[in-house]
């Protein structure tokens, strides 16, 4: 999997975003063992301390947990995973509405345009 980092944003927060996305999308499934910090750091081309910091923060958020001897795993807690999906959905929706509002659409117009987009049968959803 490829890693891309934007300029001017702390790398550890970008790692958290990317790893969170991988968990949400199932690239790392619930209960999966994660690669070691060193392997992840090598893969992403980042400093191991930075990767460690990101993993510690993901642990704090309950997205991953570590077993003392066997490594770090993706959470199997359904509540955490459901909340993760909800949070991501809200983030995307706020980005979308913000952009649509910027081009002058009001709430009803946004609702209509989303509905008709979903109704078009050439869409994937």
């Amino acid at each position: 999997m490829e890693w891309f980092f934007k300029n001017g944003i702390p790398i550890y927060t970008q790692i958290i975003d990317e790893m969170t996305m991988r968990i949400a999308s199932g690239a790392y499934a619930p209960g999966d063992k994660l690669p070691s910090v060193r392997e992840l750091a090598m893969d992403a081309g980042v400093n191991p301390n930075t990767m460690q910091k990101a993993m510690a923060e993901m642990e704090r958020r309950g997205l991953v947990f570590s077993e003392r001897t066997s490594g770090r795993f993706v959470t199997q807690d359904e509540n955490v995973l459901r909340k993760l999906h909800e949070d991501l959905a809200r983030t995307y929706l706020s980005e979308l509405t913000e952009k649509l509002q910027k081009i002058g659409m009001d709430r009803d117009e946004i609702r209509n345009v989303v509905d008709s987009w979903l109704a078009e049968d050439n869409q994937e959803v």
């Binding site: 300029n7 001017g8 944003i9 790398i11 400093n47 930075t50």
Partner: peptide, 15 residues
């Protein structure tokens, strides 16, 4: 620290 530069200056080290 490089992360400080990104966080506080909002820039990459290169910038």
């Amino acid at each position: 620290t490089a992360e400080q530069i990104r966080e506080e200056d909002g820039k990459s080290v290169d910038q």
